[in-house]
């Protein structure tokens, strides 16, 4: 079953008069690993903020999981947000809570699980990201890559349908970065989660991406869409070709 989980219609994104993206149309299908590519400063993080409701778009609308995100009221939005998870660049863990408490927080807030089940779930999620045994550590006591994985465990806590990633491999060594890619693939495959990923990492893009858009800073539009591997063999324009080959063409 291939339904759209996100459908952007004529979406314009920016801050005040600073327009970053004009009249964008794109769809993210259920089960996709959807890559948002583009040069630095072209508005990828901002687009992610719009899709997660942190920033209002300048114009246009988008459907999230079948609901028109800009029309629904606050409580319906919160309801939808529970079906999505976000992994921020630095993990964005709550520094005064242990990893276990961080992951348990959305569960205690939004689910009817018993404490015992929550404890078990926390252990399971941590094991899933390879952090079993770190339950009682504070975020300041673990490394950057571990924070990222812990953040992913928290994003996955409520079994979301969509998980957003903002530059997941930034600041990771090649091996950890590859492992994170594998983890994302496993999650996508086994939990049937749709992943929306902002990344510059070409290796990741080709390894995991099933669909993608390329945001062009100069024209402020989407200049390429499709499977990244196909875009590489058949680039629609110069700049995409340059991006996908690290400027070698």
């Amino acid at each position: 079953m291939m339904t759209n989980v996100i459908k952007a219609k004529n979406l314009s994104v920016g801050y005040g008069t600073n327009v970053l993206l004009k009249n964008a149309d794109f769809e993210v299908k259920s089960g996709d690993i959807f890559i948002i590519m583009g040069g630095s400063g072209c508005g990828k993080s901002t687009l992610l903020k719009v899709l997660t409701g942190l920033v209002e778009p300048l114009d246009g609308s988008f459907d999230l999981l079948g609901a028109d995100f800009l029309q629904i009221n606050e409580s319906e939005r919160q309801e939808l947000c529970r079906k999505t998870g976000i992994l921020y660049q630095g993990g964005a863990l709550f520094s005064s809570m242990t990893l276990a408490e961080n992951i348990a927080m959305p569960l205690t807030q939004y689910s009817s699980y018993s404490q015992k089940t929550i404890d078990e779930l926390v252990g399971l999620k941590l094991a899933l990201v390879g952090l079993r045994g770190y339950e009682n550590y504070y975020p300041s006591e673990i490394s950057g890559g571990m924070k990222k994985r812990a953040g992913l465990a928290r994003a996955l806590a409520l079994d979301p349908q969509i998980v957003y990633f903002d530059e997941p491999s930034a600041g990771l060594d090649p091996v950890s970065s590859a492992r994170l890619d594998e983890l994302m693939l496993e999650i996508n495959e086994n939990l049937k989660t749709t992943l929306v990923v902002v990344t510059h990492e070409l290796q990741s893009i080709f390894a995991i991406g099933t669909n993608s858009i390329y945001l062009d800073a100069s024209t402020k539009t989407i200049t390429a869409k499709g499977n990244p591997k196909e875009l590489l063999t058949n680039p629609p324009n110069e700049r995409v070709a340059e991006f996908l080959t690290r400027g070698k063409k």
Binding site: G133, Y134, E186, E189
Partner: peptide, 19 residues
């Protein structure tokens, strides 16, 4: 379901860190 099996394996494969 295959997903369940894979995830169980995955969570078991991660060696526990000893505090």
């Amino acid at each position: 379901p295959t997903g369940v099996q894979k995830l169980l394996e995955l969570s078991e494969a991660s060696a526990p860190h000893l505090r």
